[in-house]
């Protein structure tokens, strides 16, 4: 549970939550960020969106360019530090801040990275465990059967598995149709999907087939990277399953076309 804070004048105030939008949501799917803001406000947080934010640096970092990532990581830390909490609608970007910044940086910056890591959460974890979302705010009838893709970074770096399922149950009143091999990667892997396209596509196809086999009409998840990959592959395979970020489901924003769908 989050606690109210007192400001320097001694007045209690709502805790501030800085939303780290992630570059993919910024560029491809602002609706994820708007849904996140809505959800956080509904959970009683005062949300700020630092306007200097861009990207957490994963593309360079994962490709081994630590040199180019380091100054970017410092910039992100300095920007996010003033908030009480940082919330990220992505397991892999939250994992980058929580696990990889401290690994990348040294000395004083490593300390600052560690401190920030203790206050940084992936969206569904935050809404499930830290600032519980009030139940039943969306019309449940509107949701067709849903299956959930666990992103690897969320699952293994941040232990996110049960949180989004709990939220979908409590907020939307639906049980997830579980697919086979939920713990296997979808083949996105950042630049991997472009460096090794055939292998990546095989992994994505397996995931899409497993998702379709559940009978779900919506494939959701907490990481836009995976979802763009899966939506793109599903379209190529001619599968019509809708792909949407879990924040959109939780906030009831189903009017926007699903990922990769036209309007």
């Amino acid at each position: 549970m989050i606690e109210e804070r007192s400001n320097p004048q001694g007045h209690t105030r709502q805790p501030t939550v800085a939303l780290f939008v992630t570059c993919l949501a910024d560029l491809f799917r602002p609706s994820v960020a708007f849904a996140s803001i809505k959800l956080l406000e509904r959970a009683g947080c005062s949300v700020i969106v630092p306007t200097q934010q861009t990207c957490c640096g994963q593309p360079a970092y994962n490709s081994g360019d630590y040199e180019a990532t380091t100054p970017l990581a410092k910039q992100v830390i300095a920007m996010l530090e003033p908030a009480d909490y940082v919330v990220v609608p992505s397991g892999s970007c939250a994992g980058m801040i929580c696990h990889h910044y401290p690994r990348l940086l040294e000395g004083e910056w490593q300390q600052r990275a560690r401190d920030l890591a203790t206050r940084t959460y992936e969206l569904t974890t935050f809404l499930a465990d830290i600032a519980p979302l009030p139940r039943s705010k969306v019309k449940t009838a509107a949701l067709p059967p849903v299956t959930y893709h666990d992103s690897c970074a969320g699952l293994r770096e941040l232990d996110i598995r049960e949180q989004p399922r709990r939220l979908l149950r409590e907020v939307c009143g639906i049980e997830v149709n579980e697919m086979q091999q939920t713990d296997v990667c979808c083949g996105f892997g950042g630049t991997f999907c472009a460096k090794m396209p055939e292998i990546s596509a095989k992994m994505a196809s397996d995931k899409v087939h497993n998702a379709v086999a559940t009978g779900a009409r919506i494939l959701t998840g907490g990481d836009l990277g995976c979802l763009l990959n899966l939506a793109g592959r599903a379209r190529r395979l001619g599968e019509t399953i809708e792909v949407r970020h879990v924040a959109e489901l939780l906030s009831g924003d189903l009017a926007v076309p699903a990922i990769g769908e036209g309007n």
Partner: peptide, 23 residues
């Protein structure tokens, strides 16, 4: 984006960037 589109469609972005819309 050949590496991407050789195997999958490339989802089109929404109308504006978030930062644009948020401004």
């Amino acid at each position: 984006a050949g590496g991407w589109t050789s195997q999958r469609d490339f989802p089109a972005p929404q109308r504006k960037t978030f930062m644009q819309a948020y401004a």
